[in-house]
Design a protein around this nucleic acid. Structure first.
Length: 284
DNA sequence: AGTCGCCTGGTA
DNA sequence: TACCAGGCGACT
C-alpha cells in the first residue's frame, strides 16, 4: 500500500482504534514474513503509532515495538470487540473484516475487549518484526530513509538532492534513501503537475522547475492524505475501507487517455523498471 | 543503473 | 498464456 499517503491513512486509523489496547496473544501463521519473539509483546499495551516513510512502528509500553512494512498488498485491519462487532466492519467496502482471518491473513494479534488486529497480505511481500523500541532506528529499512516530504524535507534540502544527482528524476523521487515515502503513483502525478518529463536528468532541472516539483510533491501527497489514499489495487485503511485518490489520478494508469490539460494521449514507458505515465506535450 | 526475485491474482 | 500490479533488496 503503499505510499506515504496510504500508510499515513493506516497510521491515523490505528491511532484512533488501536492505541490503548493490550495484546493478549499473537498467532504468526506465515513465519516467513514474521520475525522476532512474539512472546515479548504479549501483555504489552499499545501507546503510539509512528510512520517513517512507508514503514510503521507500533510502540508498546514494555519497550517493545511491532515494525510493519506492507509493501505492495499488505493490510493492517482492526476489528472491534464482539459487543459492537459489525458497526464498523459492516460498512466496509473492499475487505469485509467480519470474514477474517482468511487464507491471506498471516498474523493475528488478539487484543483486549475482544478486538483483533490482522496483518493480511496477498502477495506476502511485506513483513512484521518484533523489536526493542530502541532498536527501531537501527533497522536497515528505517535507518536508510531520507527526509520526509511535508515534514523535514525543506525546499533547500530538496534542491540539494535534485542538483547533486544525474539520474532520471522519476527514479530519484522514488529512491527512499534520497526522499522517504514517494512511490510510483505520486511520483508520476507530481511530475505531471510540475510539467517535467520523468526521463529528465535530475540535475538538469532549473531552479524554477525544482521549486515547481517540490510544490507538486507536497500538493499530490496532501491530496492523497486528504482523500484517504489510492485504492486502485488492494490498499485499504485500518477498517478495510477504500481511499479515493484513484479518482484524482492525473496520469497514473491513464495510458491511452487524454491529458486533462491539453488532450494529448497519455503515454506509458518503463523507467527504472516501473510503469511510467506522462503527457508528452505538457511534460518537457 | 538495470534486472530479477519474492508471491498471488486480475486482466487482455 | 502472458503480462501487469502503491516495494524493496540482492544481484550484475
Amino acid at each position: 500500500m503503499p505510499e506515504l499517503p496510504e500508510v499515513e491513512t493506516i497510521k491515523r486509523g490505528l491511532d484512533k482504534y488501536l492505541v490503548g489496547h493490550t495484546i493478549l496473544d499473537v498467532d504468526a501463521r506465515l513465519p516467513r514474513i514474521f520475525s522476532g519473539d512474539s512472546k515479548k509483546i504479549v501483555g504489552g499495551k499499545i501507546i503510539e503509532i509512528r510512520r517513517f516513510g512507508k514503514g510503521l512502528l507500533i510502540d508498546l509500553d514494555n519497550k517493545y515495538s511491532i515494525a510493519v512494512h506492507v509493501k505492495m498488498t499488505g493490510q493492517l485491519l482492526y476489528k472491534e470487540g464482539k459487543e459492537t462487532e459489525g458497526t464498523k466492519g459492516a460498512v466496509l467496502r473492499k475487505v469485509d473484516i467480519r470474514s477474517l482471518p482468511d487464507i491471506y491473513t498471516h498474523v493475528v494479534f488478539k487484543l483486549d475487549n475482544d478486538a483483533t488486529l490482522f496483518y493480511r497480505d496477498m502477495r506476502q511481500f511485506g513483513w512484521v518484526k518484533i523489536i526493542e523500541t530502541k532498536d527501531a532506528q537501527e533497522m536497515p529499512f528505517f535507518k536508510s530513509l531520507g527526509p520526509e516530504p511535508l515534514k523535514d524535507l525543506t525546499l533547500e534540502k530538496f534542491k540539494g538532492i535534485i542538483s547533486k544527482n544525474k539520474t532520471a528524476i522519476k527514479p530519484l523521487l522514488m529512491d527512499q534513501a534520497k526522499i522517504a515515502g514517494i512511490g510510483n503513483i505520486y511520483a508520476n502525478d507530481a511530475l505531471y503537475v510540475a510539467g517535467i518529463d520523468p526521463r529528465r536528468s535530475s540535475m538538469s532541472l532549473s531552479k524554477s522547475e525544482q521549486r515547481k516539483l517540490f510544490k507538486a510533491i507536497e500538493q499530490v501527497l496532501k491530496k492523497g492524505i486528504e482523500v484517504g489514499g489510492a485504492s486502485e489495487w488492494s490498499y485499504v485503511d485500518a477498517l478495510g475501507g477504500a481511499g479515493q485518490y484513484q479518482n484524482f489520478f492525473q496520469v497514473y494508469n491513464k495510458k491511452g487517455k487524454p491529458c486533462k490539460n491539453c488532450g494529448t494521449i497519455i503515454e506509458k514507458i518503463i523507467l527504472g523498471g516501473r510503469g511510467t505515465f506522462f503527457c508528452p506535450t505538457c511534460q518537457k
